[in-house]
Structures are given as C-alpha cells and as structure tokens.
Nucleic acid binder design. Sequence first.
DNA 1: GTCTATAGGTTGATAGAC
DNA 2: GTCTATCAACCTATAGAC
Lengths: 201, 201
Amino acid sequence: MISRAVDTKTRILDAAEKLFGQNGFDATSLRDITAEAEVNLAAVNYHFQSKESLIDAVVARRVEPVNQKRLEMLEAAGPNPTLEQLLIAFLQPLMQSDLAQVYPLMARLLATPDAFLTRLFKKHLSLIIERFSEAFSQALPECDATQIRWKMQFTAGAMAHVLSRAYAMPELMPDVKFDSQTVLAELVTFAAAGFRAKEGI
Amino acid sequence: MISRAVDTKTRILDAAEKLFGQNGFDATSLRDITAEAEVNLAAVNYHFQSKESLIDAVVARRVEPVNQKRLEMLEAAGPNPTLEQLLIAFLQPLMQSDLAQVYPLMARLLATPDAFLTRLFKKHLSLIIERFSEAFSQALPECDATQIRWKMQFTAGAMAHVLSRAYAMPELMPDVKFDSQTVLAELVTFAAAGFRAKEGI
DNA sequence: GTCTATAGGTTGATAGAC
DNA sequence: GTCTATCAACCTATAGAC
C-alpha cells in the first residue's frame, strides 16, 4: 500500500513504480495505478501529460541517482582501477539492498526491447556505457573494443536477469536465500573472470 | 510477411511468433496477429481457444525442439563432459543462426517475469535446468549447489540479453556486426571462466 | 473451416464543474 | 488541484450463417 503522508504526484510515482515492475508497462493501466495510489484517475493526466511521460518520470527518478553514484565510484577508484573496482562501481549502486523494491522496474527497463523503452534506456544510459567501456578498455589493454562491449552486455544481462527474478528466486531456487550482498559478490567474481578470459574455444 | 503457402493454423503461429517477439505479449492484440497472418479474426479462437493458449502453442513449437537438442548434446558429450561442452550443449541449440527469427520471442519468455509466463517457463525448462545443474555440479565438484545455480542464472541472463538485443545490436553497438557463431564463442569463453572462478572479493 | 456481426468490457485521454 | 462524467477507440471472445 502506498503511504498517504505524501503528495499526489509522489503517490502516483510510487504506485506506478510498484505496478510497472510487478506486471509490466503494457499490462498496467492508469486505472490500476490510481487505484493503488488512492487518487483520482484524472490526476495522472494533470500531473503527467500521458502514460509515456509517466513511465519516463518513474524511470528517471530511480536511474539518475544510481548513475550519479556510478560515476562517483568510478572517479573514486582513481586513475588505474582494478577490474573488480570497475564492476563494483557499475553493479553496486543498482544492486544495493535498499533499492530492492526497484529491482523489478529496472529489470523491465533492461529487458524490454520495445522502441519507446529502448529510447528511454539509451537516453539514461549512453553516458554510463561510454564511460565504463573506456575504463574497461584501459584496464584490459589486450582486449579489443568489440570484445569489451560483448563482455559488458553479458554482465548487464546477468545483472538484469538476477534483478528480474529477485522476488521469484525463492520459488525458482527453493533452498537459495536471496541476499543482494552475496549475489553481488558472486556476480563480480563471475564477471571479472569472464572479462579476463581469452578466446580459445 | 507471412507466407500464404501454409495452412491457417501455421500462419497464425508464424505471425504471432513474429509480433510477440517484436512488441511483447501484452502489446500484441489478436487483431494484429490476424492482420499480419491475413486470416480472419475468429480463426484464432477456432484453432486455439484463447490468447493464453496461443502463447503456449507459439512457445512450445520452438522450445521443445531446442530442449531435445540440448539433451541429445548433453548425452553425446559422454559421462565426463568438459565445462565448455556443457555450455555449448546448453547455449548452442538456441543460439543457432537458423533460429535468429525466434530470438526476440525467446528473449521475451526469458525476461518477462509475469505469473503466466513464469508458469510457462517452468513447464518447459524445469527438466533442462535440473539435468544441467547436475552436470555442472559433477564437472565442478568443489562448487556447491547454490553457487552452481547462481552461475547458471548469470549465464542464462547473459544469453537472454544478447538474444533480446540481437536485432537492436547494430543500433546499440554501431561498429559491431552481430554474428551468432562469434557471440556464442565469446559467451562460452566468458561463462566458462565465470564458472571456474573461486570466491575472493 | 471460414466468415460477419456483435456482445461486453477495458483502455487512454479530456471537458468542465467545483 | 481534484473531482465526475464521458468519448472514441480498442480489446477478447462468441454466436450463428454459410
């Protein structure tokens, strides 16, 4: 349930974030959102102009702080960061446990290749991808730019999959407790080894 | 365009496969499908009972042969397969280039955690997951079952992400040509190293 | 098996009172 | 800013003629 101690605009954002993550963007109607937020239907079109603008606002509210933290951690790692430092700077700001409620939304954004969402994705992430691919290339000078991009895609896909299944995990993996700290460590270990691996199949 | 040289039922499956992959399950209406297939709207409910049954049929037609090939390759690898052999047996049947038209559909299935699709996913993949997790555990005896499951999740996520972006890749990675043979090799190398990596972060 | 026609319900968005 | 009421468009599914 969405807290009533905040203004209408925030309640709409909170409800939309929850339902978009849970059921997807297409399957969530504006009526579902206003019912969850306990606000009037017309309030959505008053505060946001359209459903697409609402999606943009919902995503931007969560992505921008994550990206800022990523760039801060990238900078804090100094001029010659290790591969592990780079992976943590990229993954940790999103996989923090206090963002667990946002995992499903982020997973939808990462894994839904619709035209509008792809545009949104590029708008919010092209700078991050650029900066980190430079850093990865510098950390692995023997690896060409194409290979770096594939390895980043693999890592992002692994992360997206974990985020999308975070809540379903107990069902899919009954004896495995989901703990974001542990999974982050597992993923960093996995991806770091993958980045360092040379061709030879 | 869907070929007219096949029967109505197949034309519906072909059109649905294309549009579900392109625009998602929710965003694709039965009208979209019958228009693309050039058949009458009522034919969908005649040949399939409902939209959910249609989705099931569309998925089953492609997943079952892939799973059969996976089990064949697993068996053909003998009693003591290498990690690389296991990864190829899991990944190659789906990432074959002659299945490129099916990539978007498979990516949607893998990356959409809706209740109905999760049920579909489990129905078609639980046997595969069981068999391969046993085989991975046997190939990496020093790795406990939980870690094996995470590493499989990471690998599946990397694969799903590549499949979902296969057609968008030229746009997201302008100077990288998508070639399923090359990407398969890159992914096997990446994942094999990730599987062998020990904790130590 | 294939068609038309339509029932019955939902959707995003807006007009206009307060 | 918030509400009610409503529009026009869309949806899945089915009944019934051929």
